[in-house]
Nucleic acid binder design. Structure first.
Lengths: 215, 215
DNA sequence: GATGGACGAACGATCGTTCGTTCGGTTAGT
DNA sequence: ACTAACCGAACGAACGATCGTTCGTCCATC
């Protein structure tokens, strides 16, 4: 009876995934449209036929590019986690050796990623449960590696006496979580551009860790 | 081909919703099972037949208690938001007049609610998008009221010079977000009981606001 | 002439929902 | 007090629609 015209995200425009997809044309277009649909209506809420129509293909043609609907989601999850992990890794490499600089770089990259690619963040974080375990495994493994980067940086700072969090893991979870909800409330604006949001999150993270910069 | 045995939550046990459901027997059992299913498999991922089987009824019988599948979710969303808002309100009332005490009380209540009723939190926050706007409206209105409680307490503290957040709304969002992801990673344990988690989150929130308690 | 992307039709399964009926308990009428 | 009327909960079967997927064929390109 009633359709569901709801869009889950604040930003309903279409940021493209990334350069990490291999430059095939149709396959990439499928992934782009699937990203929009899965983000807005959920994996189970979006149908193969809706996806095919969005791409401008017949439903059967999708199976020339992906063996199943689940594999489309799995590929999105893989791409998303890979891009995210790569962003964190690069941020860490170009940061200085100090824990403060490293955490700031990690949080900034984390926030930038989620603010720049909101639908990718949502699909990667909220729709992964719809995958069979063996298809979700690679993405989950990379997620583990990404969160380890933050925990390690924090632990290093604690060992050096620079950070004084009330508890390492809960604080790390709180810091990582800041980024995860961005797609639901944030929209870039002049008053709050993406880069400023990243700075604010970095500042909040350092405050949680007990660092006072400008007293 | 492949089923989806995934459970989205860390805690897959069955906390019951709340005393705010009216004490009807069957209707309540439907809501309880629907809560489990919607939380673990998503609204679109759970079927009326699965729900009926979980309750021990025929699918058609469900329609003696709810006019549609969507109405079951809408009722869960209503109950969840009501319980959450009530918890925040009571916490605020029994807190002192100081902004520090009020924010601590709000954050503690927020965290306790999400840690005690993880599936309710997930359904309320992640599955609402599946509802037609007119069914989601009451829940969204109450959510707005709840977040306003936090923002007001923070603003009062800022006006009094007690809080020095880098930016009010982003900081408020960060504080509220800490609680929202609890169901995905937290499980009560001896090392980290629920009450301790609530204290930690309150401490982190106050740190973000620029309050240093035990220097 | 082989390969692979695209098509249109169709498969069986499952979806949310409706229908007609039965049954047990409460209420109303005499 | 006995019966007739009623009503909501539950059932079993079935509805039409849509689901993910498969099949056979066509056609363009190498």
């Amino acid at each position: 009876m009633s359709t569901t015209p709801r869009s889950r995200l604040r930003a309903q425009k279409t940021p493209l995934p990334h350069a990490a997809v291999q430059q095939d044309g149709t396959r990439r277009r499928i992934l782009e449209e699937a990203l929009q649909l899965f983000a807005n209506e959920g994996f189970h809420g979006a149908s193969i036929r809706t996806l095919a129509k969005a791409v401008g293909l017949q439903p059967s043609t999708l199976y020339s590019h992906f063996p199943s609907k689940e594999h489309v989601l799995a590929e999105l999850a893989r791409v998303g986690h890979e891009a995210h992990h790569e962003a964190l890794r690069e941020a860490l490499l170009s940061a200085g050796p100090g824990p403060v600089e490293q955490v700031r770089a990690l949080v900034r990259a984390h926030t930038l990623q989620h603010a720049t690619h909101p639908q990718l963040a949502v699909v990667v974080n909220e729709e992964l449960y719809a995958l069979a375990p063996e298809l979700a495994a690679p993405a989950l493994a990379q997620r583990e590696k990404s969160s380890a980067l933050l925990v390690e940086a924090i632990s290093r700072g604690v060992a050096l006496g620079v950070f004084t969090p009330p508890e390492v893991l809960v604080t790390a979870a709180a810091i990582a979580t800041m980024g995860l909800r961005i797609p639901y409330w944030y929209e870039p604006s002049e008053a709050l551009p993406i880069d400023r949001l990243a700075d604010l999150h970095a500042e909040l993270a350092l405050r949680m860790l007990g660092v006072r910069l400008s007293p």
